[in-house]
């Protein structure tokens, strides 16, 4: 699994580290890592509803933050569990832009093995590193 949960960073909450060879891949994995906190077995989320969303930010970390918030938004506003299949990052007038293709379905407690709601993405130890082996993000979620 290209993400792992870090045990002792956040006692009351959940921290994860995600990694991938590319920036775009990192975003896809980080989205799954967040979703996996709310639902066990991401394979149970069928791609029945499609959403395309766009976020902008001045740097890559803030872009990841805004991107992850989208999953929480759709979960509350439309009760949708989403997984992203494709991420495109572009440079837009001094800012970074991101377009994501997401698919998923409405939460169904009978079908989905649900865990805890994610309230927010925090800025605590929030970090993206570009290492020789690829891109690594550390994120702490408020539960």
């Amino acid at each position: 699994m290209p993400y792992t949960y870090l045990d002792e960073i956040a006692i009351a909450d959940v921290a994860f580290e995600a990694w991938a060879e590319t920036r775009e891949g990192l975003f896809v994995e980080a989205g799954d890592a967040l979703m996996n906190v709310m639902v066990e077995g991401l394979g149970s989320v069928r791609p029945l509803a499609r959403r395309r969303f766009h976020v902008q930010a001045r740097d890559l970390e803030r872009l990841l933050f805004e991107y992850l918030q989208q999953f929480i938004f759709f979960k509350d506003a439309e009760q949708l569990l989403l997984r992203v299949s494709d991420v495109v990052i572009t440079q837009e007038a001094g800012e970074l832009g991101l377009t994501a293709e997401a698919a998923g379905e409405k939460i169904d407690p009978k079908r989905h093995d649900l865990n805890a709601d994610v309230k927010a993405v925090t800025l605590h130890r929030f970090r993206i590193r570009n290492e020789p082996e690829g891109w690594i993000a550390t994120v702490v979620l408020d539960i």
């Binding site: 002792e8 006692i11 959940v14």
Partner: peptide, 8 residues
Amino acid sequence: GRVMSRHS
């Protein structure tokens, strides 16, 4: 107040 992480 929690003393043990959720994961643990």
